[in-house]
Amino acid sequence: MIAQWPLVIASVCLAWGAGLFASLCAASLAGRAPRARIGAWVVAVILLLAGALGFMLRTSHWDRLFNSFAHLASPITQELICLVIVIALALVYLVAYRRSEGEVPAPVSAAGIAGAALLVVTVGRSAIVPATTPALGQVMAVVAACGAAFALGPMSFELVAGITDRQSRKTALGAFSAIGGGVGALTTAGYLAYLQAARSAAVVGTGRGVEFGVDPTRPQASIATKASLLPFGGECLPLAIAAIGCAVLAFAFALAACRKGVRPALVAMALVLAVVSFTLLLVVFFMTGTAGAGAAAF
């Protein structure tokens, strides 16, 4: 299967935007980086709207867009509802910020963190997982999305803080961007390892089926090989390795930025690598997700 780019873009932007909004709320709760807050708010809202746009790009009937709130049990409906809630919470945050001259009440920030966390969970459920995924796969997918958001959010807040408040020599969120980067690297590697193990067991272990199907309606198409269904096999191998490599490097840059105080260039490098890593993770997921083969492992 080819990568579903609108879905990939939507998932990356939503996890990123939600992570940044949660980091902003956490900074407000801790009373850190007051000058960075409006900038972070604007970037977070742009990312959330870009995520919504990604979903719309995938949709062919914009005139019926509101139908997508109709099936409450669908992970996509839940994701869209959470997105609306988080955007509403962001507006509440802005109003509270303007009224109290920067001091946002703690319940507003706490609600923002909870809403953003919920959104990231639904992103993991809807984007990475076809519905046939076994329970463990669904949990792993949600964990991977949470790990990515935990890396992207604090890193981008740190970057905004580094740019808007050049005087400060301290990090805005302490070691959070480095911890987030570490967690992100672990969840990325963990999810790819899970995919490899689950699909190897279900597809390759049987030693039957795959590599035998020929579709006469596509005589030129190559036959799916077992390797093409594995993250660490076929053409996905370099992408999977790059996903983990970028996540580890992002962690290293975030750690270096933490140790050396505010260094926007280092944080920016970490952030770019973390974005690339999560994007590659989703691309690998789609590219290895050839329909049918070893479906039980998806």
Partner: peptide, 13 residues
């Protein structure tokens, strides 16, 4: 709405 979420969800394409 043609969102095609169902397309990759089907195990049989």
């Amino acid at each position: 709405i043609g969102c095609q979420a169902c397309v990759p969800a089907c195990p049989y394409g």
